[in-house]
Structure formats: structure tokens, C-alpha cells
Design a protein around this nucleic acid. Structure first.
Lengths: 353, 353
DNA sequence: CGCCTTTTGTCAACCGGTTGCCATAAATTG
DNA sequence: CAATTTATGGCAACCGGTTGACAAAAGGCG
């Protein structure tokens, strides 16, 4: 029936070089030159240096190109110029939904400006990340690092080579895109305070995470402002599972509201607390961060501080493209706003009954 | 005039061509040749044709290469050979979690075999997809199409040019990777039948979706086998929102169990039914397809027929790599198993009370 | 030891664009 | 109308590898 492998080896050992697989080789500027009756270099200019050739020859060449269905050979172009119209995006974990919107945002902006996005994953490891970055550097015009794990110095070293933009972290001397947590956090804390909470717990993310530190700072500041108590708890890992594991500490802390480093933690935490019989939000309020895909699948749906991830991605791409084309180097930090997305997992505390 | 080659570049207005941004140009095989005292072509052979040069010169060259920190220029290599060690993956929607695992699986396998994955999105449009595919064809060695929207003929045309592998669809003459729905579906339907359900509804996906058709066929067959009734309902779009919209039809159908084309639909449907006061699974059982990220965030967690998406991605990548390196062309269809993941959203029907 | 086969390294011709320099034609100016 | 500037196209030298053809060197054999 359906054999998994049908090794019909005997086919033709296709040498297949310039003719991809069929018989017709791709048209080159030399072909166009022949058809249009001009020199190849003129064709090259007509196609890449607007205004360098007369309108008449321009048209002649364009017609010939269209007729031959010409498309540039990117390698031939890249060889002498070094430009590839490509840039790289490195994320820590492709399956982490936090990055989905970043990827999409970057992809969209790239495509819009005729660039191609090349994606790589670092598997949450600083060395893999650096390796991937190095490898990419050879083939791209610029690089976006989303929540990078490597050293500031490594990043700066890369940035000396080609334009680099960092998302979700600030590195001196390198253009960055970071969500400004303050607005979202203060909205969240004010909402909790208004609902009668006096003590909130913050479940932190990885210790090396720049963003986790910012969020904890933000929570402390907002709590101080609202005159409520803030305690910090550590998580083992920033995942659903990590959230489950931290549930004990959360209950022990005596806090009636929890903010977690990210939505994944919040979801795991909520599952575990509910499994233990607690009612959310009547007995405890839970607020996540990021508003990832699936944050509204839970019952109750998760209240969260949204980072405009898509905006981060497209912002970083735009920054990079400006760097590549612009004359000077602005290289500032782009801050994007966060906001509270109020759903069902936070609310008024019911008197114990 | 000065010497033809002056390594110490006057550090003025950086023309920045081969020297990325700093002063040191990348080492080339010519540099290695000079250091090792051999001809550039010998260097080229030593580095790419194992066994073509003597062990002695091999070592000499490798040492020189290491000393100069040489890395090949991919463009220079691609130009004469056409090989890029790169392949493309086109997905309909980067933010659709169905593709996450596919992407990751393909990425992992690619990296493992020293290939780079280039990702593109078709935004669910057949024309965008074809455009993206065409564009990619110029720069990659092969292409993976995940749940493609374009015509069979377009796919075959692409496949004539370079190796193409299709995921989640069968196209004659093109190697494919498809989950075999039967096992998973029959498990699901048997489970429903065993729980006392006599009538199940199938909420279909897009009409052009090859996979939706297969799933409906599978459901019909399994229901016939279990002697229970199956009805088909249409959805407007295969998303959470589409699931909400189809809730009315589901209730009107009188079915006590529902299988939906994908998890997104199932989640939306469940949300809507619960909002209307129905209890899942006591009053109605819901089963999705795919086991996407977030399928277990819901309350109750979603029962679903899992497709090994990661396996599909890595399988497709492996197939493609075999095609690229293998001598002949197996070009068969790779079938992967599906299985039922029993969670809380399906179960015994409670007598109406 | 001469003849023949098998390594092993060199030469040179690409791959397909880009770009500096130059010659010519066209346009501008005194 | 000559002199000078400017627009336009051609020539040729790259970019950095790959590879077929070939010659020199090495090894095998009678």
C-alpha cells in the first residue's frame, strides 16, 4: 500500500546547476543587454540606479527585462555589495507565545520594505544565541535580538559589525525597543487597590532577565504610591509549570493579589490555585504580563498588563531599516506604552465566608 | 599611487564594503592560500571536497584557516553553485499556534543539519503565498509549504524548479507530510460513544482546506463504525471567533458532542456555550483538533485529537534535506499518527435535570 | 629501469551582478 | 560658434568562491 520509502533511485542524476531543474536558465542582465542592444552595465544601472540612464534606454531595458521575466540573482548582487536585503531575528524560544507577535510585527514591516526576515532560535541559551548571531551576521544586513540572553558586551561587539536592534532590554550604545512598564503597572496596582487589596505579591522571572527587574521595580513603585504592601516571590522557570510550583509560596505569602512576571506563570498559578479550591478572583486576584495568545482562554480570562509586542517587532524592524538606509545614526531607545487589560481574573476581594 | 593592497585602511570616511564596519576585512581563501603557501583552488578543495587533497596540505590549510578566523562567504559560494544551505518555510499565519510547533520542528532539524530556515507568511492568501514562494525560490535550496492555500498546479510548478515538501495536504507528485487522522478520530468517537453520545456534530473548517475534508471523512467513517449519527456544520472562519459564531448552529443541531475542525474553533465554541449557561462536559462534549498551545488553558481543559505538529515540521525538513542530498527522489508521502488527548471537555452526558 | 596508473596541486574560466573611469554625445554658456 | 559642462553608455576590473582540464609528482608493475 503506502510504502513509507520508495527509493526509485534510478531516476536521472540531474546535474541541475543554473537551470534549476527544467531546461530554461534564468535570464541575466547579459540576456537583457543583448535584447535591448546595450551594455550589461547599462542594464545594471537601469535596474538599480534610478536616473542614471536616459528615460528612453530605461524603458527599453525594462521592457526587455519584463519580456525575459528577469529577476536579479541575489547572490550575484550580494557578492560585490555586501547587501542582501535581509535581516535576522533571534528569539529565545520560538514556541514561547511572547515572541509570536514580535515575529509577526517584524516580518510584516520587513516584507513591506522589501526585506526578508530570517528567523533563528537560541533555545534560551546564551551560547547558542551568540553562535546563531555570528552565523547570521554573515548573511544579513542587520540583526534584531528579542530578549537576548547574552552579555551586553557581546551585543555591543555584534553591533560594531552591523546594525543591531534589541527588544525588551536596554543596552548602552545599541538602539533598543522596550515597553515602558510604568503606565500598565500603575493601572494594574491602582485597580487592585481600588478593589480593596492591601498586599500584593510579585512572582519574578529569571534572575538575569532585564525585564523582570524592571517589572518588579515598577510594582514596588506603584505599590508605594498606592500605599499597599508588595512582596517578591521567586519562580523556578517562567512557564505554566513554574506558575504551578509557585502556588504554595503565593498562598503562604498571605497576599490577596498576585502579579506575575508573565502570563504563562499567571496561568499555571491560577490552574493550581483553582485546583486547590480557591476561587479567582473572589479569594485572590491574578494579573499577568504581556497579554499573550491564549490569555483569554482561561476561566476566568486573565487580567494582564499588555505589552504591544507586535509594535515592538515592527518598531525594531523600522529602526533597523532606518539605520541601514539613514545617513546618521539616531540609535536611541524606542519606548512603547503598556496598558492594563482588565479581564476576569482580578477584582474585588470577597469577605471570607 | 600606493601599493595595490594596503591593509591599513586610512580610517576616514568608512567606505565600508568588505570590512563590515570596523577595519578588518574578512579573510578569504586567497589569504589562506598565501599563508599556507598553496593555490587558492587547493584551499577551496581542502575546505569543501574531503579527501581531494593530501592529509598534509589539508592540515596546513586548516591551520591557516583557523589562524585567520576564516569563514566562507556564502554568497561567493552560492553564486557558482546555486546552493545556499538554506530553505524556506511558508505558513499561512505566523500567529496561528498550529504552526508554532511546525516551525520549531523544521527549525530544529534544519539547524541540526547546518541549514538555515527562512520563514515567510502568506497571510492566508493564495496569491501572497505564491508571491512569497516565488521570491523565496531564488534564495533557497528547497521549500516547505505548511497548509498551503494555492492550487495543486502551482505547487507542482514550484516543485519542478526546486525540491518542495508540503505539510498538511497531499499533492500528487510532491512529497508530503500528513497526519493520518484515522487513529485519533476513531479513538475520539469511540470515547464519545462509550460515554453515551448518539449524535455528534462536526464543525468544518474552510471549504478549500484539504485537511478539513479529511477530518470530516474520518468523523463520518468512525461514527458509522460506532453506529452513531454525524452531522456537519459550517464555520465562517477557523478561529476563536468563528467558534463563537457557530454555537447557535451547534445547539440547534441537537448533537450532544461536537468535534471541531481545529482547537481554536473548539475554544470559541466552548466559551460561547458556557456563556449561555451550558455545562461542559455535562451537557455537551467538545473535542478539538491539533492540541495547540493553550488548549489546556481552558476550563475544563480541551479534549483534542493531537497531530504531532513538531514531527510534521521536522519530518518535512528531513524529507527536504534527503531530497537535496539523496541521489534519487523518493518523493513519497510521510504519514504521522494522530492520537486522542483526553482532557476535561468531553465525557459522560448527564441526564437533563 | 622504463612504462603506466593514480594522486595532488595549479591554471584559468566561470557564476551574475556592481562600479570607477573614460569617451562620446548632448546641452549649456560666453 | 567655440569652449565647457553635463548626461549617458561602454569597458573592464572586481566580489570570493568552484570546478574542469591538465601537468607534475608519486606509486605500481613487469
Amino acid at each position: 500500500m503506502t510504502e513509507p520509502k520508495t527509493p526509485e533511485v534510478a531516476a536521472t542524476t540531474a546535474p541541475a546547476k543554473k537551470h534549476a531543474r527544467d531546461g530554461k536558465p534564468n535570464a541575466t542582465i547579459y540576456d537583457i543587454a543583448k535584447v535591448a542592444g546595450v551594455n550589461p552595465s547599462t542594464v545594471s544601472r537601469a535596474l538599480s540606479k534610478p536616473g542614471r540612464v536616459s528615460a528612453k534606454t530605461q524603458k527599453l531595458i525594462e521592457d526587455a527585462a519584463a519580456e525575459l521575466n528577469y529577476q536579479v540573482n541575489p547572490f550575484a548582487r550580494a557578492l560585490p555589495t555586501g547587501r542582501t536585503n535581509t535581516f535576522g531575528l533571534i528569539v529565545a524560544d520560538i514556541t514561547n507565545p511572547t515572541f509570536f507577535d514580535i515575529i509577526r510585527g517584524a516580518e510584516t514591516t520587513a516584507t513591506l520594505r522589501d526585506y526578508t526576515l530570517v528567523l533563528a532560535e537560541s533555545a534560551e541559551s546564551a551560547v547558542t544565541e551568540l553562535t546563531a548571531a555570528r552565523r547570521m551576521m554573515a548573511t544579513v544586513d542587520g540583526l534584531i535580538l528579542a530578549s537576548p540572553r547574552m552579555d551586553d558586551d557581546d551585543i555591543r561587539t555584534l553591533a560594531r559589525d552591523k546594525p543591531v536592534v534589541v527588544i525588551n532590554r536596554e543596552v548602552d550604545g545599541v538602539p533598543c525597543v522596550v515597553p515602558d512598564v510604568n503606565k500598565g503597572i500603575s493601572e494594574a496596582v491602582r485597580s487592585l487597590a481600588a478593589n480593596g487589596h492591601h498586599k500584593v505579591a510579585f512572582v519574578a522571572g529569571p534572575l538575569q532577565s532585564w525585564m523582570s527587574a524592571r517589572r518588579w521595580e515598577g510594582v514596588q513603585a506603584a505599590c508605594e504610591w498606592s500605599r499597599i504592601e508588595a512582596v517578591r516571590l521567586e519562580s523556578t522557570k517562567p512557564t505554566v509549570d513554574g506558575g504551578r510550583q509557585v502556588a504554595r509560596d503565593v498562598r503562604a505569602s498571605g497576599a490577596t493579589a498576585v502579579l506575575t512576571y508573565n502570563d504563562l506563570l499567571a496561568i499555571g498559578l491560577m490552574q493550581e490555585l483553582q485546583a486547590a479550591g480557591m476561587v479567582v478572583p473572589d479569594q485572590i486576584s491574578i494579573v499577568g504580563f504581556d497579554d499573550i495568545f491564549g490569555a483569554d482562554f482561561t476561566t476566568p480570562p486573565l487580567t494582564t498588563v499588555r505589552s504591544p509586542l507586535g509594535e515592538c517587532g515592527s518598531g525594531a524592524a523600522a529602526l533597523l531599516l532606518d539605520l541601514l538606509h539613514g545617513t546618521g545614526e539616531p540609535a536611541g531607545t524606542l519606548r512603547v506604552e503598556t496598558e492594563l487589560v482588565l479581564r476576569g481574573s482580578s477584582g474585588r476581594l470577597l469577605p471570607a465566608g
